[in-house]
Design a protein around this nucleic acid. Sequence first.
DNA 1: GCCTTTGCCTAAATATCCTAGGCAACCCGG
DNA 2: CCGGGTTGCCTAGGATATTTAGGCAAAGGC
Lengths: 191, 191
Amino acid sequence: MARVGLTADRLVLAAADLADEVGFENVTLSALARRFGVKDASLYSHVRNLHELRTRVALLAGGEMIDRIATAVAGRAGKDALAAFADAYREYALERPGRYAATQIRIDQTLVAESPAFRRTAEITYGMLRAYGLDEPDITDAVRLLRSTFHGYCALESTDAFGAPRDVHTSWTRTIDALHVLLEHWPRSAP
Amino acid sequence: MARVGLTADRLVLAAADLADEVGFENVTLSALARRFGVKDASLYSHVRNLHELRTRVALLAGGEMIDRIATAVAGRAGKDALAAFADAYREYALERPGRYAATQIRIDQTLVAESPAFRRTAEITYGMLRAYGLDEPDITDAVRLLRSTFHGYCALESTDAFGAPRDVHTSWTRTIDALHVLLEHWPRSAP
DNA sequence: GCCTTTGCCTAAATATCCTAGGCAACCCGG
DNA sequence: CCGGGTTGCCTAGGATATTTAGGCAAAGGC
């Protein structure tokens, strides 16, 4: 019985690739085992269950995504930074649909808090908005708006939810322009 | 063998209720059959398969949602209309999480195009933005931004993705304020 | 009251998740 | 180099879910 050399990390990576190919919700332990040429049960030595596998894919994707975003934003500020952030975000979502879908699942908040990727995301986003002159609590509200818009746009675009003939990339560029204007005119909360 | 009186519509309604209780992804034909006290196979006379059931739940939810929004927006304009739209949207999403999750699945575009609910949604949204003085192609871009933000916010909120201690409802109100400002300062595309 | 329709059934094939227990390949100390 | 522990992958098997095929009986129209 030759050993294939499974490890948890290889499984998670393969699961992420599989997700990009067939959709995150179609990632099954059976399909993953098939891909490695082993039996389903063999995977349970490396991963507790399907839920843990999905969670780990989500954390992997979150890390990859913030790496790309950090690289894109590095050395920029203002609208440049905003556009770089947004484009890196959207490109990852469109390029790796299965991984991106993974980032949308509900994850145990303690796991999220422990994840360096999520802390880094927060730092980068807050830093970007501080450059727009925002402070608490406005900054948190603005972060939530940006996240919502980016996430919503990519989720809708990747499920073909935009019906109108207008080019989707153009709308995205205009959306970033609009968000930039918005951040400059942000209505401050009453002191 | 007493008949329970199943129909496709009753199944879809029950599936939607089930989704709100246990989550959309946990809606199974078995669970639905159990709820009616019949065997799984009996459902196949009314619904082709699980996929069709899910699609019909999505269309049901889309219709219910736009009804609420239409009622809320009726007779309002400007920021009033925007806030009414947004609040109706979010309240539906939070009140009926399973149904709302259903609206996020990928649906055959021909089905969507045929659905009166989606046409009505488009009419209401475009009407609301025309009141802000927007025209094509800006209006389509703005519609996409609004949809994205509403959808993204509710999707993130309903999966507990907002970690910061800041109150989620307050952020929502501020987000609407910000979007109102944005629509008033919308950067027109070059003619 | 018959007869068509159809609602719900049983039976069975396939797929997935997961547990329990076993053997053999690997890795290391002697 | 070899004996022993670790562990990678196995078989076997239970539980649940999707789906098809074919059958009986209840409802409803004539």
